[in-house]
Structure formats: structure tokens, C-alpha cells
Write a protein that binds this DNA or RNA. Structure first.
Length: 795
DNA sequence: ACTCTTCAACTTCAG
DNA sequence: GTTGAAGAGT
């Protein structure tokens, strides 16, 4: 502890004089509001910066770094600044750089939790029985390992899929639980062998000299907990700690931070409890909620002035999030006065919703939506689940509206990238058995299961890696003919590439050589599948991404940097993405479709997590609304096709939580505003019904009209009856039985897709119906309505 | 060893 | 309805 006190003395003695000098006229302080300034200037002790959406969080954070540096309080290498994504790290680097010339480049400890842990772990690997050149497994390798372990245990792979094991173990690692520390209650998972498999997995990783992403954190926590000297060294070294998106930290990250900040307590955490949307990934909102208890004397600063959205949008978002319990509490405000209300609109089905949004986008481009003309670049459609994007892609493809999808499979997770990476890995470290397994028969070399087994046996019986095993196998003539020749060529290739890597020289040329000589490029060139050209394109991008690195090793470590491969074309496009992917972004015009109970809030989240899940969904809604700067449009559909099945749905309960005075209820053009279901019926082209509705067509219905409509009241009373944690099955059964019992044989019914028909039989929750046009069909009862009342029983 | 067919799954996703 | 993975067939 004594060395520690020295450090404290040092920390407070040096900066004081210099801080006085820098106090005035520092350019990075210009234009900061009082709260931001406070967050920037409170350098010592624990600080919690509660930064609401659009309140200039990154600005304050970078200014704080600039302040630490330019007052001489800290040197660049004494600041530990952690983020969750490489993107965030990069942005912070460039913004600090912009404030201070190129000083940002000199901050070696600004990075993601994982990249910083890799750096630390390479230095201290031996303390957890690894060598410093350990490899980091990707998800694919991980699953392969789990599969092997499960098979070795003789567990049924069908009932206990490797993926499930992976997520269980991942969960344990997120909670910083080592195999010996898994609570008894959890330990029985996976056919009672969960913990045992966990331990076996860790053993296997050790022999492979590898670790997974969770281990990076967990190993460092272990080291800090068991080696005081190492911990002390870093406590002295990292004199100031900054954490971005603190609400997203999991237990392991939390422990890591607490250990490091334990001495000087100079830790500044930035976050927003209302934007915690990664609970399913192990994030603990509790970490940020507990900050003041964890760090007594903590200084909490609230950034509440919003620079992004109009007052109506902010009010709508606040209205929704207010229903959550246990918030730290913030009230966003803005100096902005004008602006459109949040728009709300219901549609008959998902296709109509997509069609309408497409038309809106075109109209907004022409400036006919009350706003200035808005470019497609300024518009985004944010959905809860990625499969919802398809409806929009389909629609936009047919009308030729340019769009871009963010997310989807990550660049580095793609097949061809992972294959190429496996080659690179082998060239860097030929003892990487997982990489060897991956590419030994990719492209096809005639080395099938049998040949691979022989290699495995040769390797294991000689206690060497697979490459050496292959060499032994070849020398002993255990393999003959074509396979032997192919394997010999692969082995000599790996040797050659490895030599090339060790020589240094251009790693880009080496990479090209590897892809070329291995036959991998040729393999895709010969492939005539439609995606082959794209894959070749990706490989080219991969090589191009190498330019940013000094060598292959460095590249392999930071492979994820190439994830955001923005295409460079300049055509304006709407952005399509999930709500999760949208966090941290902003757009002048935002569409939030699919606000239906079950979809959003997501049923599974509620079933599995109960109130906790619902609150996270609500935060997601909050994140969605606060992405909008000028115009936010929420919509829902009464019917939606999910997994090929038509399902009717109720508007999301979050819609009820939107404050009425900040919402404009729109009705689809040409439809009667007396209820969404009724409107939909008209749209689905029953001439008799639409005739009966008359010509009373508003562009906008008053909100009261819609909120008082039968359909709406029905939705309200239904959602009021429901308890949050009630499982879906129960609910569906009740509804289905209700639905079935509403019919008897001989009833005339109407189905939105098949039209009119007659009930000829009842089986469980399904009806046998003879349709006038479509013929006999079996249909789930809730999708049909009595023909006579088709107009007023929408749900 | 490769291809075809059947069968189940299916929220969100960074490192 | 669609996709991906595993098993059987050639």
C-alpha cells in the first residue's frame, strides 16, 4: 500500500499549478453547457456522467480527456479509456485528436474492454497458464469445440445443442463465474453436466493455448485478484479511468473496473440507464444504478439538455420511459420550440405498412410533409427484429427506392472471411489446430472425414499439433494417392507462408500469396453460385483492410475493425436497421414500424424475463424515439405474417404510453378513421363494406376519434387484462379457444386472404372451411371473422 | 466424398 | 415461409 500512497501524493502535487494556467481559454471548453463543463472539470474522484440521449455525451467525454491532458493532470499513457465497440473507440480517438492536434494517437490505452484486455493478457498470460501468443477463438471455433466435448460425453446433441452450451457458459463468464464458482442452482444446466463441460472446455482451451472473448476479461480479473503486485502496478499506471456506455457493462467488466479504480478512485463512468438494452448479453443496469453506493462520495452530473430532437419527440420519449421503475431519473429538455408531433398510424398488414412508408419517403423527398425536403440519407427505418426488414426490402426493391441495410452478418463472420482468416492464422502460428481443421479440406482437397481422422490420430499419438501430425502421417505413408499429394502440398504451403510471415516483408503480399497458393481464390472463381462474386469482392476488401496494419498478427487481433465496410457510393439511401444497431445514431426522420404487442415489446423477452424484459423493451422504444431529430413516425399493423402464418396483433402497449398531446394520429389516406380494423377491412377490398363506410375520408382523424373507436377500446381492455409474465402459450390457448367456440358448422365466415366461405368442420383450434373462391382449407380460427360482422370485429 | 433431402428453428449481437 | 444444418443416399 505504501507505494500506492506515494502515487496519490504525486497525482495531486503535480497538476495543481498547471491546472490554473489552463483554466481559461481552453478551446475544448468553448460552447459547453454548465453541466457538461462540470463533468469535464471534475477530474478527481469518482464521477458519474448521466448523459441522456443527444445531450453531447461524446463531446463531454472527449473534452474531459483533453482537459486531463492539457492541464497536465495526466499524460496520455496514464489514461485508461474503455468503450464497447471499436467504432466508439475510433471515434473518440479522432475527436480527441481533433481537439489536441494529434495527441489522440498517443493514447495507447484508449480502446475496447477486449482490446485492452488482450494487450494486458499478452503480458501476463503465464499467470493463467497461457503462452503470450495465445489465439482468440471466434464463435465458430468455439462451437466446434463444444460439439466435440458434447459428443465425448455422449450427450444427445439434439436435446442439448452446442449453441445452448455456448450461451450458458458465456453467461457464466459474463457474470465472472469460473467453473468452481458456478452457483449450485445453475450448475445442473445441460443435462446436469453443465459445470463439468465448462471445466472441460477451459482445460481444452488451455491445451490449445487459446481463450474466448469472455476469458479475456475473466483471466484479467483472475490475475488482478490473485496477484496484488500486478494489480498495484496497473493501479499506479492507470491514474485516470474513463468508461463509456457504463450501463452496458457486465459483472466481469464491472469487477475489472472496480479492481483497477480501487486505489485512487479516479473513475468517470458515462452512461444512461434508460438506454440499457443489452441485458440479454449480460449487461447489468444495476452497475450504473449502484454507482453512488459503489463509489462513496461519487459526483453525479446529469446532462439533460438535448441538442438533437424537437420538444414533441422528447416528450413522447419521456412519456414512454416514465413507466419504468427504478430509474436514476432524468428530464430531457431543449431550447428548440417548434416541430412536428410524433405521428402514429395503423395499417391493415405489414405489406401495407411498408407500402405507406415507401410513399412517405418519396413524399418527404419532395418536401410535401410539412418539413423541408428530406433526403433519403436523412431517413431511417428502425425495427425490433431483423426479419422485419425484409418487408421493406421487398417493397423498396419493387418501387426502386434506394436503401441500405446496416447489420446483418458481420463482415468477419462471413464464411469466406473466416476461411481466409484461418489461413492467415496458420501462417502466423502453424500450431493453430482449429484453423487447420477449418481449412484442411477447404477448398476441397479430397481430404474427407477418414483422412482427417488419420491426421488427428497421428497428431494425438505423437503429442503434436495437427500440422505436425499431418507431416508424420505423410512420412509414414499412412495416406496414399490423391489425398496424400494434396496434403503434402498444403503442408509445404503452410511452411512457406509461415516462413514468409517470419521474414517480415509486406504482409499484404503474403496474404495475397496465401489466398492464391492455397487455391482458395480459384475455388470461388470456379464457383458459379450467385453469391460467389460477392465473396470474391469481400476477399478483396479483406486484403485491402490489411493496409491499416503493420503485420498479419496485428490484423488478426483487430480483425473486427473492418466490420463497418461502408460502401463508398454516394447515392442517397434510406437506412434500414434494428433498434439495437441504431443506438448512438441519429436521423432527421425516423420510422418505427411494427409496434405491436408480441413483436414489440417482444413476446419472448417478456416470457423469459418478465417485468425486467418488458422494461428493457421499453428502453428500446425510448432509444428508438430519441433517434429522431425532426420527425418520428410510429406505426403498427393489425395483421402480420410471421413464419408464414398470419397473425393478428394488438397495437403495442407502448403506444398507450405516448402522451396524447404530443401525438398526431394519422389515418391511411382514403380510409375511414373510425378504427384501424375497420379501415383495414375496407382496404382488403370488400366492396359491400367499403361502400357502407361512405365517403368520410380524412387525411387526419382527430386522435380522440381513434382512441374512442371500438377497436381501440378493445385493445385497451385486452392489454389491461393481461399480466406481463403470463406465458404466450396460455394466452394463445385462451384466445384460440375463444375464437374456435365462436363458430359452429354452417357459419358463413370471412377470411382476409381467402375471402368468404362456410365452416364445414372444427378440429382443435382450426376450422375446416369451404371457401367460395379458394376452395376447402384448414384455417386457424382467429384468422376468420363471422361474415355478417366482418366490419366491426377486426381483432 | 459429395449431393440431395428432410427436418427443425426462429429476438436483439460486440468483442 | 425460409433458411441452415444433419443424415441418408449415390
Amino acid at each position: 500500500m505504501s507505494s500506492f500512497d506515494d502515487h496519490d501524493a504525486f497525482a495531486s502535487a503535480v497538476p495543481l499549478s498547471q491546472r490554473a494556467m489552463a483554466g481559461r481559454g481552453a478551446p475544448y471548453l468553448d460552447g459547453l453547457n454548465p453541466a457538461q463543463k462540470e463533468a469535464v472539470e471534475t477530474l478527481e474522484g469518482p464521477v458519474l456522467m448521466l448523459a441522456g440521449a443527444g445531450t453531447g455525451k461524446t463531446r463531454a467525454l472527449t473534452a474531459r480527456i483533453a482537459h486531463l491532458l492539457s492541464t497536465g493532470t495526466a499524460r496520455p499513457n496514464e489514461i485508461l479509456a474503455v468503450t464497447f465497440t471499436n467504432k466508439a473507440a475510433r471515434e473518440m480517438k479522432t475527436r480527441v485528436g481533433r481537439l489536441l492536434g494529434d495527441a489522440g494517437e498517443g493514447m495507447p490505452w484508449l480502446g475496447t474492454f477486449h482490446s485492452i484486455c488482450v494487450k494486458l493478457l499478452r503480458r501476463h498470460a503465464e499467470l493463467v497458464d497461457l503462452k503470450s501468443n495465445f489465439t482468440i477463438l471466434d464463435t465458430d471455433d468455439q462451437l466446434r469445440l463444444f460439439r466435440q466435448l458434447i459428443q465425448a460425453e455422449g450427450i444427445d446433441e439434439k436435446r442439448w445443442p452446442p449453441r445452448m452450451l455456448a450461451s450458458i457458459i458465456d453467461g457464466w463468464k459474463n457474470r465472472a463465474l469460473r467453473p468452481d464458482a458456478v452457483p449450485v442452482a445453475d450448475a445442473g444446466a445441460f443435462d446436469r453436466k453443465g459445470v463439468m463441460l465448462y471445466a472441460a472446455y477451459q482445460d481444452r482451451l488451455k491445451t490449445l493455448n487459446a481463450c474466448d472473448f469472455g476469458d479475456l476479461l475473466l483471466h484479467m480479473v483472475t490475475i488482478f485478484q490473485t496477484h496484488d503486485d500486478v494489480l498495484e502496478q496497473y493501479r499506479r499506471y492507470f491514474r485516470f479511468i474513463l468508461v463509456d456506455e457504463y450501463q452496458d457493462t457486465n459483472v466481469a467488466q464491472y469487477m475489472w473496473l472496480r479492481l483497477l479504480a480501487g486505489g485512487h478512485k479516479n473513475i468517470c463512468c458515462v452512461g444512461d440507464d434508460d438506454q440499457s438494452i443489452y441485458g440479454w448479453r449480460g449487461a447489468e443496469v444495476g452497475n450504473i444504478l449502484r454507482f453512488e453506493q459503489d463509489f462513496p462520495g461519487a459526483h453525479t452530473v446529469r446532462l439533460e439538455q438535448n441538442y438533437r430532437s424537437t420538444p414533441h419527440i422528447l416528450a413522447a420519449a419521456s412519456g414512454v420511459i416514465a413507466s419504468n421503475k427504478g430509474r436514476l431519473g432524468k428530464t430531457l429538455w431543449t431550447e428548440e420550440k417548434d416541430g412536428e408531433k410524433v405521428r402514429l398510424i395503423g395499417h391493415w398488414d405489414g405489406e401495407e405498412e411498408a407500402r405507406w412508408i415507401g410513399e412517405e419517403l418519396e413524399a418527404m423527398g419532395r418536401g410535401t410533409r410539412g418539413l423541408r425536403p428530406v433526403s433519403l440519407d436523412e431517413c431511417a427505418i428502425l425495427v425490433r427484429a431483423s426479419h422485419q426488414l425484409r418487408a421493406f426490402e421487398d417493397r423498396f426493391l419493387t418501387i426502386g427506392l434506394p436503401y441500405r441495410v446496416i447489420g446483418g452478418p458481420r463482415f468477419y463472420e462471413r464464411l469466406e472471411i473466416r476461411d481466409a482468416m484461418a489461413y492467415f492464422r496458420l501462417a502466423v502460428s502453424p500450431d493453430d489446430d482449429l484453423a487447420f481443421e477449418r481449412i484442411v479440406n477447404t477448398p476441397k482437397r479430397g481430404l474427407g472425414d477418414k483422412a482427417q481422422q488419420k491426421i488427428q490420430i497421428a497428431a494425438r499419438s505423437n503429442g503434436v499439433n495437427l500440422l505436425e501430425g499431418a507431416r508424420i502421417l505423410l512420412a509414414s505413408k499412412g495416406l496414399t494417392g490423391k489425398g496424400a499429394a494434396a496434403l503434402a502440398e498444403l503442408v509445404s504451403g503452410i511452411d512457406r507462408w509461415h516462413a514468409q510471415v517470419r521474414l517480415g516483408g509486406s504482409h499484404i503480399e503474403t496474404a495475397e500469396m496465401i489466398l492464391d497458393e492455397s487455391g482458395y481464390t480459384t475455388f470461388w472463381q470456379n464457383e458459379k453460385t450467385p453469391e460467389a462474386p460477392g465473396r470474391l469482392e469481400n476477399l478483396k476488401e479483406l486484403v485491402k483492410a490489411l493496409e491499416n496494419f503493420d503485420n498479419l498478427q496485428g490484423f488478426l487481433e483487430h480483425v473486427s475493425l473492418i466490420m463497418d465496410n461502408e460502401s463508398e457510393d454516394t447515392e442517397a439511401k434510406v437506412t434500414l436497421m434494428t433498434l439495437h444497431a441504431a443506438k448512438g445514431l441519429e436521423f432527421p426522420a425516423v420510422f418505427l414500424p411494427g409496434w405491436e404487442d408480441g413483436l414489440f415489446p417482444n413476446q419472448r423477452a417478456m416470457d423469459e424475463q418478465g417485468l425486467k424484459g418488458l422494461e428493457e423493451e421499453r428502453r428500446l422504444a425510448y432509444v428508438g424515439i430519441t433517434r429522431a431529430e425532426e420527425l418520428c413516425t410510429i406505426s403498427f399493423a393489425a395483421n402480420r405474417r410471421i413464419y408464414g402464418q398470419w397473425q393478428s396483433a394488438l397495437p403495442s402497449r407502448f403506444i398507450d404510453e405516448l402522451p396524447e398531446e404530443h401525438v398526431d394520429v394519422l389515418t391511411p389516406p382514403g380510409l375511414y378513421g373510425g378504427g384501424f380494423g375497420a379501415a383495414g377491412m375496407a382496404a382488403s377490398a370488400s366492396p359491400a363494406i367499403s361502400g357502407a363506410m361512405g365517403s368520410d375520408m380524412h387525411e387526419k382523424a382527430s386522435k380522440a376519434d381513434v382512441y374512442n373507436s371500438p377497436g381501440w377500446r378493445r385493445m385497451q381492455s385486452r392489454s389491461a387484462q393481461r399480466s406481463v409474465s403470463q406465458p404466450q402459450e396460455t394466452r394463445n390457448m385462451v384466445i384460440d379457444l375463444e375464437a374456435v367456440s365462436a363458430f359452429t358448422e354452417g357459419d358463413r365466415v370471412f377470411h382476409q386472404k381467402f375471402g368468404y366461405g362456410e365452416v364445414t368442420g372444427i378440429e382443435g383450434d382450426k376450422l375446416q372451411i369451404s371457401f367460395d373462391k379458394a376452395g376447402p382449407k384448414k384455417v386457424v380460427a382467429k384468422f376468420v371473422v363471422p361474415a355478417a360482422s366482418a366490419g366491426d370485429v377486426p381483432f
